[in-house]
Design a protein around this nucleic acid. Sequence first.
DNA 1: GCTTTTGATTGACTGAGTCAACTAAATTGA
DNA 2: TCAATTTAGTTGACTCAGTCAATCAAAAGC
Lengths: 305, 305
Amino acid sequence: MTDPALIESAREFNRFYTNFLGLLNKAYLDTPFTLTDARVLFEIGAHDGVNAGALARDLQLDPAYLSRILKRFREEELIEARPDPADQRSQILTVTGKGRSQFEEFGHRANAQIAARFDTLADGEPEAAVDAMRTIRAILDPQAKPAAAIIRPHRAGDIGWIVQSQGRFYAEEYGWDLRFEGLVAEVAGKFLANFDPAMEYCWIAERGGINLGSVLITNGGDGIAKLRLLYVDKAARGLGLGKQLVDECIAFSRRKGYRQISLWTNDFLHTARAIYQKAGFRLVSEERHRMFGPEANGQTWVLDL
Amino acid sequence: MTDPALIESAREFNRFYTNFLGLLNKAYLDTPFTLTDARVLFEIGAHDGVNAGALARDLQLDPAYLSRILKRFREEELIEARPDPADQRSQILTVTGKGRSQFEEFGHRANAQIAARFDTLADGEPEAAVDAMRTIRAILDPQAKPAAAIIRPHRAGDIGWIVQSQGRFYAEEYGWDLRFEGLVAEVAGKFLANFDPAMEYCWIAERGGINLGSVLITNGGDGIAKLRLLYVDKAARGLGLGKQLVDECIAFSRRKGYRQISLWTNDFLHTARAIYQKAGFRLVSEERHRMFGPEANGQTWVLDL
DNA sequence: GCTTTTGATTGACTGAGTCAACTAAATTGA
DNA sequence: TCAATTTAGTTGACTCAGTCAATCAAAAGC
């Protein structure tokens, strides 16, 4: 559950931006086009060759309504439609020369409007605002998100992120108390304080600058590698990141000459358990505990390398 | 003249957010209210006692249209209108009990919608998005006033946040290596693991769900309170949060009967040093160290209570 | 080959939003 | 001071943006 204060802020912003966009969009009033018209023409101009279905989906428009708009645009010779050879029902929409100049006219108007607004701002403010806009879009627009997550070694702040995300996750999902976050912090802190790059490692899964997951291998002595703090953020579940992280651990441990990997987990973490099992780990012991409040089944798994 | 690339980005964002808001606002479809209705009711609910003119101006609505909406609301007994004694033409609008519960219903819906969207995001993304929203609003909305910062006890995730933000800050600003983050994690982890609510405390400065600063008091034994991990985020410097946090520590330590507060810091942290000095701390020892890479001057300060 | 699904269109409607004219109170100014 | 002007809000008359259901035709599924 997200912090209510965050949600309230988001709503405030939405109210503000609804007004703000309404103000901007008033500008279409002195053209024979509605905002919707402009959006449609813009979309066709920007993605030459779209079909009506995609347009309706992207702009959240009623197909019937869109159909009428397109018909009018065809009559006014702003666009041309030819049937898609691959699908005779569908049609490929392109702007005509006249349509393109109208499209560009919209562009100029919109540019001028924003430029006028930006010109009233202080030095650096436009840059800061646009930067923030890009941030929001990268987060909220699923299409703007770079598809690929990468796995990289840890750097400054990552260990803190691990503590924070695990602390939150176990508290929210399983009601574990703050002692758990404390344990994670201690484990992670010791890892950093005594970090031995020859035998230890931390992997962070990241997408577009946002951390999504983590795991670390610490030296348990006696040829045993300890796999710890495996975590995949809820936003990135199902992408196979957990498996990738565990695979990295196994490969690393083999390479470094460990003879066994050992890990401790809890039985309610089904996804994690499935990953361990599939990777060849076997359950060696199990004990009930109440270390962090609610009762849970702690499990130790090992993999012989 | 503003950079065209900035303007293009702003336009992209506006297009995206037009869609996004359109999507959110579809939700009003299964109520007998339109988006405009909801905005009007919201505005009256939020600013009890507005008059129609102000409403029309704020929401950019046609007075005629607004008049009809208000008439309907009066008929449905969602609002009440009584003439302004200072100006008999104007009328003061207030929500009735029924109106208020409808207003709250809108609030719940909007909250739930945003919460649902945020729940699909990665860890930290909602905070980042809201932070960016606030940035935009602060820049574009002349009448936006930043929410007040509050100071509260820690909860799940906060300790991780402390580790992360300090780890990042010292690495970026002073080139300290990861051993420092490790130390912070250990200190913070021990604090949680052995937390003694009677004699220890953690304060988090927060503004609208975003953490801005922290400090903690741990029991050093022998009647000495240890002030640790004082931090104020870049975005919140100059608001006096550092002083507030330290004041909390002093008041708490006095209340709990400590006879002295002791803290360790580094000489290059001028702002922090000024706060300690002003609060009455005195420098008792100083030593050169290279605990975290670059050479630095560690200092111990104490305050007798 | 039959049924179902999908892309697009048309008919029929409605109600959100607009524009102009109007009333009544407040303000202005010679 | 009182006629002229401005301001706050209302009403009449209208329109056109947007919706919903039905339909057609091509494609896909079984």
